[in-house]
Amino acid sequence: MTTAEISPPTHPVAGLPKAREKMGRRFAYGFLILSIMPIVVGYSWIVVATLSFRTEGLLPRNAEGGIGGFTLSNWDFVTDGAIWNAMFNSLLIAVAMVFGVGIASTAGGYALSRMKFAGRKAFLSMTLVLHAFKAEMLLIAIFFVLRWLGDIPIIGNFVGFNSVGGVALVMIALELPLGIWLMKGFFDNLPWDMERAALIDGASRFRVWWQIMLPQVRPGLAALSLFTFIAGWNAYLVPFTFTIGTKVANMPVFLNQLISDTAPTNWNQVAAVGLFQMIPLLIFFIFTQELLLNIYAGGSKGS
């Protein structure tokens, strides 16, 4: 009895926190599951809806009101050329943006971070101010610019009004202030010595940028590319404003065209097209998840 009291009560004390820890973890998971429920339910509905004639809540209904009534007819559009055309246009805009924004931002960001030139300060503050202008405010002015561009022989066909190139150009321009500032920030964080060493090793300024500095900002460039791609893929306002008809429509515009004012809208089909639009992004996310986590967790390490 006495010995039992004197000896340290290892078991109960060690056991208690373990149980508490388990409880805590359960609570945390419970909270997380609860908080993503709306999203999960929403997506589930979309998936179910695209495969049914009509739905009631999450449940598909057949003509008699019972459970059932699955169909693939909502997906008929995949055999239609128009959707593939729209998807191709979306891809074109997104890829053009990734390249345009990527190249201009890394080059401009480097110059603004590392080089001295007249008007550098003014340029920096100007881009920041420009970024504050929403695209909506600029639509009319951009319209005139695109019209003017379209009148230029030869290149006008690619970048003028009602062309995929024109839409991409406008989207790139709108995205650039953010991109340049982002990349400038990444370059600002790189040590000068590495660059000096490369200059002494015999590299030209361009080679320094291309071979030494760019590899160091790869995580930043990857993040920028990703945001730009998503922005381009989902672009709606600019393509909607500066394109007419289905030939140059991208996915969101195509989706909008399904919702007509005169005929009743087949919402299940709209859901199917929406899901279809998401598929490339989903695949992309699945494959780059690890990279993305790295970027969000703190960017470039190891230098």
């Binding site: 040590p191 010595d193 000096r196 060493a197 200059l199 002494i200 090793d201």
Partner: peptide, 29 residues
């Protein structure tokens, strides 16, 4: 220009190119 001065420099921070191997670094010039 620095590259035409026939100099080699060693930095306090080493200033190595982290995306290259040792061979890549030494062979760069």
């Amino acid at each position: 220009a620095p590259k035409d001065r026939g100099i080699g420099m060693v930095f306090q921070s080493y200033a190595l190119y982290p995306h290259m191997t040792v061979f890549g670094n030494i062979s760069y010039p």
